[in-house]
Simulated scan of single mutants.
Amino acid sequence: MSQDGRAEPATEAFVAHRNLLFTVAYEMLGSATDAEDVLQETWLRWVGVDLGTVRDQRAYLVRITTRQALVRLRTLGRRKESYVGPWLPEPLLTTPDVAEDVELAESVSMAMLLVLETLQPTERAVFVLREVFDL
């Protein structure tokens, strides 16, 4: 907090884009816990940035998040070498009643999972950023 009671500019920017950053990390990692860890790493890197040199804060934050998610994917890949099952993201409940969304999600989710499973971590990041977020 600054002396006038307002949040610092870095904090305001991070909070403004936090939902987007979480979604990017979650789509790449498939785990809410891992996505939160990536957001913590993103925050630590973001507070060390000179904001005067950043032209587009949203793009810069997405770049940091993507790179951190790729690092996490590589780390998880080394840890889960013996896992033989398909890659499936953990369910993420966002509202108490998701019955309407479940029907639509089921029709798309298997195809998306198969595509994501066949991609390398860097390819997965590019696919998620381009197709899901149109970046």
Rank of each mutant, 00 (worst) to 15 (best):
G77E: 12
E100V: 06
E90K: 08
R78Q: 13
A35P: 12
S109M: 11
M28N: 05
L92Y: 10
D37P: 00
L29T: 07
E100M: 03
V15M: 08
A35T: 12
A16M: 03
T75Q: 14
L73H: 07
L21Q: 14
A35Y: 10
L93H: 04
V98G: 11
K80Q: 14
E12W: 00
G48V: 02
Q68A: 15
T11C: 02
W43Q: 09
T94K: 10
L70G: 09
V54A: 07
R55C: 00
G30V: 03
V108Q: 11
L113Y: 06
L114W: 02
V98T: 06
S82L: 03
V108C: 04
L51M: 11
V47E: 15
V15Q: 12
T42G: 07
A25D: 09
E90A: 10
Q68Y: 00
P89R: 04
S109V: 13
A25L: 04
A59T: 14
Q57H: 15
N19C: 01
R78H: 10
A59P: 01
E103D: 11
V15E: 13
L39S: 08
E90N: 08
S107P: 00
T95Q: 13
W87N: 10
T33R: 13
R45Q: 15
D34S: 10
A35G: 11
R18V: 07
T53N: 05
N19M: 08
L44C: 10
S109E: 13
Y26R: 14
P9D: 06
Y26I: 04
L104K: 10
F14H: 05
T11E: 14
M28E: 09
E103T: 12
V38S: 08
R55H: 08
V102C: 01
F22N: 13
A10P: 00
A69C: 07
G77T: 01
T11W: 02
Y83G: 00
V62W: 02
Q68V: 07
T66D: 05
E81H: 06
E100S: 08
L70C: 14
K80I: 00
A111E: 13
A59V: 07
L39T: 07
L39H: 06
Y83S: 06
R58Y: 03
T66K: 15
H17T: 07
L93V: 12
M28D: 02
D34Y: 04
S109G: 12
T53Q: 13
T95I: 03
W43C: 01
A35S: 14
Q40W: 05
E12P: 00
S107M: 02
Q40C: 06
L114D: 04
T66H: 06
E100I: 05
R78A: 05
A105V: 12
L93P: 04
L39W: 05
N19E: 15
D34G: 01
A25Y: 05
L39E: 09
T94P: 00
D101Q: 13
T94S: 04
L21S: 11
E106M: 06
V47A: 03
R55K: 12
T95P: 00
A35Q: 10
